[in-house]
Every structure is written in C-alpha cells, then in structure tokens.
Design a protein around this nucleic acid. Structure first.
Lengths: 189, 189
DNA sequence: GGGACCACTTGCCATTTGGCAAAAAGTAAG
DNA sequence: CTTACTTTTTGCCAAATGGCAAGTGGTCCC
C-alpha cells in the first residue's frame, strides 16, 4: 500500500486523513502467473496499481496472431481507462506474466474518493495522462525502426523484463516472430 | 469557433455565459502549408484546436530519418500535452501539411478558464484523455502488421488524407520507404 | 534414469522490404 | 509551349524477416 501512496504523492499533496480514506478503499489482490486480470469483451470494473510483478496487455489480430501492446511493470497503474471510464467492453486482455500483487479500487469506491477528496480528481488526471503519454512514447518509436533497433529500444525501456518473461511475448510486442528475435539476439552479442 | 464549441459540448455541458468566456479567450490563427506550429526544443505555449487543414507530428531518429508520429485532422486538439502541462521542451515538430486554420488559447488564458469555469477542468480532462487514447489506438496496431496491412489501416483511419498529402509523409508514418509504399499501392489496385 | 513438456535456437528457402538511381508523371511559372 | 522543380513510379539487387520444421537444452514429475 505504501508503494501506491508514494506513487500518488508524486503527483500532488494529500493529508493524513485523505491518505487514510484512500487506503481504506484499497483492496490487495494476488494474481497468479498467466491469469487474466481483464478479458476482451468484459468491462473494466477496477482501477488497479501494480505493486509487484509484470503483466501485459494483448489482443488478437484478424489472422489470429497474438499481439502484445505493452507491458505493465511494478509501480504503474493497471487499468483500461476507456473501458473503466465509459463502461464499454475492453478490446484487449490483461494477463499476468509473473505472479503479481495488485492494489485495486472498485469503480464505486473510486468515484466516492473523487467526490470526497478535494484535489483527488486533479491527481488522478495527472496520473492517467502521464501513463497514457508514457505508452505513446514507448510505442511510437517501434513503428519506424527495424527489428534490431526495436529490440534494443525494448531493452532500454524494460531492461529488467528480458530475463523474466518468455521470448515469444517480447517478439509479439516487437511485431516480429520468435525465430527472428532469437537470431537478432544472437547477432547483438 | 462554433466548431470548437460543438466539439467541447460533446464532453460536457456549458451555459451561454461560460461559452462566451471561452470564446473570448480564443484566438484564430492561420498556418500556411509547411509552416511549423511547434518545433523540437521549444515549449508548447498554446492549447490548439484544428478547425481546417491537416498537420503532422514528426521527429528525427538517430539516423537522421524523418519520422511522422501521427496526423492531426480537422476537429481535433493540437497540443503537445507534456510540453504544455509541464513546460518542458518538445521533442517533436508539429508541421502544417496543408494550409490550416486553428483556434488557440495561451497558457495563461487557459489557466484562467480552468479557474473560472466550474467543470471546465473535467471537460478538458475528458478531451485530452480521449485524444491520447485515440493516438494509442491508432499507433499500436501499426507495430505488429506488415507494410501492406499498415497501409490499409492508415486508409481506414485517415481516408481523406491519402490524396491530400505527399506520399513520403505517409511512408514515414507507416515506417517504410516511399518506394515500398508506391509498390504496395500498385499491388493493392 | 526416462519421459513429457517447454522454451529457445537453427537451417533452409520464400517473401518482403530497403537502398539507390533513373525514368516518368505532375505542377507551377515564365 | 518550355523550363524547372517536385512527386511518384520503376528496375535492379542486397539485406532483413517470415514460415516451417527439426534440433537442442532445460525443468519437472514419476
């Protein structure tokens, strides 16, 4: 829980009472490896925060290939904003890649906090904007570069992930086949 | 100006007085083709809205290649949020691809509106989140697909752009060379 | 130890895409 | 119409990547 509060306080100030209110609504959740936190077609009912572990957001294209949109590491929010805010079905899956510990808030609790805590909406706004901007900054360089460069960028962004998750997931994030990625890794060393 | 108000009202309600306040602060700007609205290294001082025309956001990679991150069409906001909010230098250029007409707000006026109009912060939040989500939804499918599929997706997203802007910009958006794009187009017909 | 799984690597060849330069087509000005 | 300029297409070949299948190596379980 402290991790979440620490994270939040980077975006704005809260007094002890407000922090207590937030902590009160938070629920700790464990998610075993490979389990889904959210599935396509369902509505995101929770605002989550990754305390420990790694998850990925993925979907299937019209050829049935599994595509990893991005990875969520420790100390990041884990929420499908479009689905959570507008209550529309998610188009993507969120899957634990390692055993994960999360903090989650139900939508109702989250809205109560927004109405109760002055300035909370502002902090949440900053948090979500930052998270969205980060995703864009991470994804957009991947379009223009060749596979080797993409892999090197991946290693810069997620240095700790390379040895924690299967190669096939990294390949599906980089938009290449697992074989190609294996060859690329061989050439880099 | 009506276009902007109409756009805003899709995200929340405002009374006539509030609309007048907003209109009051707005400045109409014309941007000729090829001119820069924002340059890398400078700080975004304005919140913009594209009334007519098309712009692109681009940057240069470490090989000196020009990369187009995305296109901004009519009836979309045009603002580097990271730069505008946190007053950090922009890493990208924003360039008019056709003659453009914009509505812009200075940062000071924008902040006055945020303080004056109850609920304006909430509307702005929705607008910016939606814009960021849209960018992610448009960019991320480009990573995983081959060039032909990327081009077809581009045509779905920006059907009106194909004949309005040079091929080289589309290629730099799709992450392929202009020659390849030319060949791809030939094969599709 | 022997299987049964996985994840990863490698070999072979087909296909896609890039790099470069020339040709063709389109556009604007005189 | 001619010229100058820009944009797009094309040809040629090299390099990158994909598809498929087999091989290698590791782990877990009995």
């Amino acid at each position: 829980m402290e991790a979440f509060i620490e994270y939040v306080l980077k975006f704005g100030s809260l007094n002890q009472q407000q922090i207590a209110l937030i902590s009160d609504k938070a629920t700790e959740v464990e998610l075993p490896k490979d389990a889904y936190y959210l599935e396509a077609g369902k509505i995101a009912r929770q605002f989550g925060f990754m305390v420990e572990g790694v998850a990925r957001v993925c979907y299937y294209n019209n050829k049935g290939e599994e595509i990893t949109k991005y990875f969520i590491e420790e100390n990041n929010i884990l929420v499908n904003l479009e689905s959570f805010d507008y209550e529309i079905p998610s188009s993507a899956y969120v899957q634990a890649m390692t055993d994960c510990r999360l903090i989650v808030f139900s939508k109702q609790d989250w809205q109560e906090l927004l109405q109760t805590i002055v300035g909370w909406d502002n902090i949440v706004h900053k948090i979500t904007s930052k998270a969205l901007l980060l995703k864009i900054e991470r994804i957009s360089p991947l379009v223009a570069e060749d596979a080797t460069t993409r892999y090197l960028k991946f290693m810069e962004i997620y240095p700790s992930l390379a040895n924690r998750i299967p190669l096939s997931y990294i390949a599906s994030y980089l938009g290449i086949t697992q074989s190609s990625l294996s060859r690329i890794r061989k050439n880099i060393r």
